[in-house]
């Protein structure tokens, strides 16, 4: 076999980790694609003046922001089996847990972003004859995006690292590969390599958000 460090065959380790990165990307992108729209729905629900919508949403956010994501992964993996004798399957349970968890956080970020838009913007849109949908899509949303970019970048970076939690329900992502290799070769090298993988991915995330921030810097509100 090829090159070894601390008894660990590096080339096969890297190969396994690249393969496992696919899973990280899958969790990452599926979570983003679903939790962002859901986050907006949560934000609107929180802004609703109807208590019947507002209060349950608050409770949902409290539960999913107030308990460990790891526990939520266990819950969606094994809970349905105990309660209804039914299972989502490993991967689906993982995605559901991530989406539901991150939508709770995004909901809070977007709520803040929407609240930061001055009332005058809505009033100007109204007297110009924009309907509610146009007002949100054309006037409010673009300004909200600018407001929430920094906080959203934070969440994206946390999400990259949080994918490592999926190992608790044996989803084959990078950290899962690393811990398996660590126990097989009695070496910490796989963990260090895993750390480098996360760091590289988050560098890409960080740079993308810096670019987005710069691009939206053409105006001050």
């Amino acid at each position: 076999m090829g090159y070894k460090v601390d008894n660990v065959p590096i080339d096969s380790l890297l190969l396994n980790m690249f393969e496992a990165s696919g899973m990280v990307f899958k969790i990452f992108f599926l979570t983003i694609i679903m939790s962002i729209p859901l986050g907006f729905i949560v934000a609107f629900a929180r802004r609703s003046r109807f208590k019947i919508i507002n209060i349950p949403t608050r409770i949902y956010q409290l539960v999913f922001r107030g308990t460990p994501l790891m526990l939520q992964l266990y819950f969606f993996m094994y809970g349905p089996h105990y309660l209804f004798n039914f299972s989502f399957g490993r991967f689906n349970a993982c995605i559901i847990a991530f989406v539901v968890n991150y939508a709770a956080y995004f909901g809070e970020i977007f709520r803040g972003g929407i609240a930061a838009i001055p009332k005058g913007q809505y009033e100007a849109a109204k007297v110009l004859g924009y309907n509610k949908f146009q007002t949100f899509m054309r006037i409010v949303l673009p300004q909200v995006i600018k407001h929430v970019i920094p906080a959203t970048g934070n969440e994206f970076m946390t999400l990259v690292k949080d994918t490592s939690l999926a190992q608790v329900i044996s989803v084959a992502e990078i950290f899962n590969v690393a811990t398996n290799a660590t126990s097989r070769y009695f070496s910490t090298v796989p963990l260090i390599v895993a750390g480098i993988f996360y760091l590289v991915m988050n560098t890409v995330v960080e740079l993308s958000f810096k670019m987005a921030e710069k691009k939206l810097n053409y105006y001050n509100s």
Binding site: G120, Q121, E123, A124, V127, Y219
Partner: peptide, 17 residues
Amino acid sequence: ITLDVGLVFQNFNLFPH
């Protein structure tokens, strides 16, 4: 009626973006 009416605000309320 909205279309028949224009309003200029004290603090302009232009769309900053």
